[in-house]
Amino acid sequence: MIVTSYGKPAVVILSVEESERLKELDRRVLRLDEMDDAQLHEMIAAEIPPELRYRIEDIPETP
């Protein structure tokens, strides 16, 4: 949920579960200069599985 102030987004309210999920993702982030060669090559070669690919046009508008 987005809370606005004077018509502009000001605060986002998340469920505890979503907050924890985002924190976990944040913990997994590595800076490029912290990666070894194997990790860099793995990242470069990574692909999104076809069943998970989408285009921006595929995302429905939200009210």
Rank of each mutant, 00 (worst) to 15 (best):
M35R: 07
E24V: 08
A10I: 01
G7V: 00
R55D: 03
P63I: 03
L22H: 10
D36I: 03
A38L: 13
R21G: 06
E42Q: 12
R27V: 02
M43E: 10
E47N: 10
D58R: 00
A46P: 01
V29C: 05
K23T: 08
R31K: 15
L14R: 11
K8T: 07
L30Y: 11
P63C: 03
V11P: 00
P50R: 13
I56C: 10
I59V: 13
R27I: 00
P63N: 02
V12F: 05
P9Y: 00
A38Q: 09
E18R: 07
I48V: 15
S5R: 01
D36T: 02
D33N: 14
A38C: 02
E42D: 15
S15H: 05
Y54V: 14
L30P: 00
S5C: 10
L14S: 10
R53I: 07
V16K: 08
L52E: 11
I48C: 06
A10F: 02
K23C: 11
T4S: 01
P50S: 14
V3W: 01
I2F: 01
V3P: 00
T62K: 08
R55M: 05
M1N: 10
E17W: 09
V16L: 07
L32F: 11
R53C: 08
V16Q: 11
K23F: 13
I44N: 05
I56A: 12
D26M: 14
I13N: 06
R27N: 11
R21M: 13
L14P: 01
D36N: 09
D33R: 14
L30V: 09
I48N: 10
D36A: 06
S19C: 12
S5K: 02
T62I: 14
S5W: 03
L52D: 13
P49S: 02
I59A: 03
L22M: 15
D37K: 15
Y6N: 15
Q39L: 06
I44D: 09
I44R: 12
E47L: 10
R31Y: 06
E61Y: 07
I48D: 02
L40W: 12
P60D: 08
I13F: 05
S19F: 15
V12S: 00
E61F: 09
S5F: 04
L22F: 06
D36F: 07
D26K: 09
E51S: 13
E57K: 11
I59S: 03
R55K: 10
A45M: 11
Y54D: 05
Y54F: 13
P9R: 00
M1T: 06
E47K: 02
P60A: 02
T62W: 11
A10W: 01
